[in-house]
Amino acid sequence: MIKPGKMLREVLTSFFQKPATVLYPYVKVLMPDRFRGKIRFLATLCIGCKLCMRDCPTNCITITKVGDKRFQAEFDLDQCIYCAQCVDSCPKKALESTADYELAQLQRNKLKMIYHAEPPPPQAAAPIE
């Protein structure tokens, strides 16, 4: 039947329902485990193949060699589109997605994430002695 106020019952019931609004900054929204958030770099696993640099659509990854088998990664988070292609490209699983999505910064330089390489292990220094 065509009539005005078809949604009347629905709106009246939703008055007594809990609001659908999420009080976001106060109540944290959890992302599913597959979420592609900020990328984490595991320096110990990196072999410096730079496949991630080659496949990154926005060229936001820079891997630099800082010593023998030690690599440092630099991410420009303001350029990253969080596609996680680097995670797929990495043959050694040295990169992984996290569920961290709160990435806004007031200062631009804070958007540059630098993962320093691990300090050289002590046994590597041993043969020189």
């Binding site: 065509i2 009539k3 005005p4 106020g5 078809k6 949604m7």
Partner: peptide
């Protein structure tokens, strides 16, 4: 239902 019954919408 709403699309076929609510008069102001139609």
């Amino acid at each position: 239902e709403v699309a076929s019954e609510e008069i102001t919408l139609i």
